[in-house]
């Protein structure tokens, strides 16, 4: 193997593709944690989003007949965002209204995401592991040889946008306030509960979007367990990125690069593929051990608020 231009381009494209779901999910997680709610359910929401996108698009294809329908994948994307928001709402309800331990509630939804897809897949396709392939994937945009899914561009555009929302709008100020000091925010007339619901549901919408990218942008079907821990890695990236959009951009790029490198190394004789697959996870552990001491989470994160 040589470090020629083709290899580097492939590595770059692969990095961008691998970064996209992490970036979307991590930005979502940021909204949730900035509002004071840990959302470890993001992993499960990724799966629910992916399942929704793949099944909705495939079912509509079956109903509409053959022929390219360029708008169809976008319906899948919207449905995935909706379902992601809905699952996140359940997490919000249980952990805000019923004051459940946020990590347990999130874990429950992750467990649900391990089992529920099989039921749905068995119902529609008669097998428990994957959906039928869809014909209408998300399109590819860009010059010849450098084509990427529109969601890739969207993910990177979201970085400045979320920065602006979080730091330059009244909404962002309130969101951060309820995550740092809900009592103070409440005294000033901010509706703590509503801000937290909004933060959590936003995180679900973004993770659902990331799931749609996995199912009908990156691949063309839903495969059981296809998120492979991306939701958790995204959370680690969010911590590493210090709950800040720009930090998150760089940390997810690091993880995306680790994954891309692992993919590019597979099939070569440098390292065995089974070990290389573990690379991003090892990086996550190392990064968390090395840097978390220097970053500070929102002060009220993880604590239920009571008036």
């Amino acid at each position: 193997m040589s470090l020629d231009a083709a290899f580097l381009t492939a590595l770059l494209l692969s990095t961008l593709r691998q970064t996209t779901p992490l970036l979307l999910t991590a930005l979502g997680g940021m909204f949730s944690e900035r509002s004071g709610v840990v959302n470890i359910a993001l992993e499960g929401i990724l799966l629910f989003g992916a399942l929704t996108a793949a099944v909705v698009v495939e079912r509509l294809e079956a109903a509409l007949g053959p022929g390219p329908h360029p708008w169809l994948p976008w319906v899948g994307v919207l449905a995935a965002m909706g379902v992601g928001g809905l699952v996140a709402f359940v997490h919000a309800l249980v952990s805000i209204k019923y004051r459940a331990d946020q990590i347990i509630s999130g874990t429950a939804l992750n467990l649900l995401a391990l089992g529920a897809p099989s039921l749905v897949l068995t119902y529609f396709y008669g097998n428990a592991t994957s959906s039928k392939e869809v014909a209408n994937r998300l399109p590819l945009w860009g010059p010849e040889g450098f084509q990427l899914s529109p969601l890739v561009y969207l993910a990177f555009l979201l970085v400045p946008l979320t920065w602006w929302v979080l730091f330059k709008t009244p909404f962002g100020l309130r969101l951060r306030a309820v995550g740092e000091h809900p009592e103070a925010a409440d005294t000033l007339g901010v509706n703590v509960y509503r801000m937290r619901y909004t933060g959590v549901v936003l995180s679900g919408i973004l993770a659902g979007l990331a799931g749609a990218y996995l199912a009908i942008g990156f691949l063309n079907q839903f495969v059981r367990g296809m998120s492979a821990g991306m939701g958790f890695i995204a959370l680690a990236a969010m911590i590493f990125g210090k709950w800040h959009p720009v930090g998150i951009l760089f940390s997810t790029l690091l993880f995306g690069f680790a994954s891309a490198l692992a993919i590019q190394l597979q099939g070569t004789e440098i390292l065995p593929a089974v070990l290389v697959q573990a690379f991003p996870y090892v990086v996550t552990v190392l990064v968390l051990a090395g840097f978390i001491g220097r970053s500070r989470p929102p002060a009220a994160v993880g604590k239920p608020y009571e008036k």
Binding site: V94, Y98, R99, A100, T107, A108, G115, S118, L119
Partner: peptide, 29 residues
């Protein structure tokens, strides 16, 4: 012909509901 995963869905729901205190009044949690 119902997928065995029905059981894991039940498990997940149980975890969720136990975490929420079974949606029972506060004095139970």
């Amino acid at each position: 012909g119902i997928s065995r995963e029905l059981v894991s869905v039940l498990q997940a729901l149980i975890v969720l509901f136990v975490a929420a205190g079974g949606f029972l009044p506060r004095y139970f949690t």
